[in-house]
Write a protein that binds this DNA or RNA. Sequence first.
DNA 1: CAAGTGCCTTTATC
DNA 2: AGATAAAGGCACT
Length: 302
Amino acid sequence: MKSEVFMEKMVLQPSQPFNLDLTLRCGQAFRWEKIGVWWYGIVADKPFKVRQNGNALEFENISASFVEKYFGLRDDLPLILKQITKDKHVEAAVNALKGLRVLRQNPWECLVSYICATYKSIPAIKRMLFNLSKKFGEKAVFDYRVFYTFPEPQRLAKASPAEIASCGLGYRAKYVAETAKKVASGEFSIEELQAMPFEEARKKLLALPGVGPKVADCVLLFSLERLEAFPVDVWMKRIIIKHYAIHFEGEFVRRISHKKSLTTTEYEKLSLFGRSYFGKFAGYAQEYLFHFERVNAGKAPA
DNA sequence: CAAGTGCCTTTATC
DNA sequence: AGATAAAGGCACT
């Protein structure tokens, strides 16, 4: 961690496409709030604000290098988009969502966030994470506003499942409590995942309570630099059935079409398809397709 | 406005 | 391996 103070306003001019609103609204991260023209957030222990003014990215109370990393500005977006645009479906999504980038979240917060996210709507997820932070995190004031740090593993490890459940987590509370204990005790090291091969890191994550393939893929993609990870949720399943059914046997498509949840084998088949079809930046394809489908949900197909 | 349905799934059990 | 059920409670219709 850097110890300098970055209270002054700083400006960054991304040389490549970037859209802050899209990136923060597409449901990757859950603790950002837009107040007026500024987005307020707290990552690690420091609140900060960011806004996009034309092409310029302005921010306060944070370093330029953190902003660059966190918002995925080090990704070569044109190259990535070129590689994932394998068909007209991705092409439409890419054209509609210019500047959407994959964030690089804090791995611990990301892990808990997606354990909480299982079988929940985005507004509900936001509520749970706000409640958790308010109850167990540290208060931090910035711009006369109050923020809460995301609770450390040690803090959640010593909280009772009932206390955690009171934040609205329901049955997920015990998963968060148990996972926090494993991380706090050192039995599980999130840092070590960084150096591991994709499949190995994934396997490690799957051993944690409350972490299935979907959660593991989200953590890998959104916080562990694994842009090949291809999370498959209900939306992605629908998209694959709608646009990519040809890549599977008819019987398989029929089977998954009428079920609400996927078996492990079925999930792996869909996720593996994503990784092999879209390549090493499959996670980006997932984000574009996912968000495009959601913003178009309810609208009649063209 | 009430009641029903769905929710960026995982786990347990057979 | 695949099918089935259960699991908070909130959000939206």
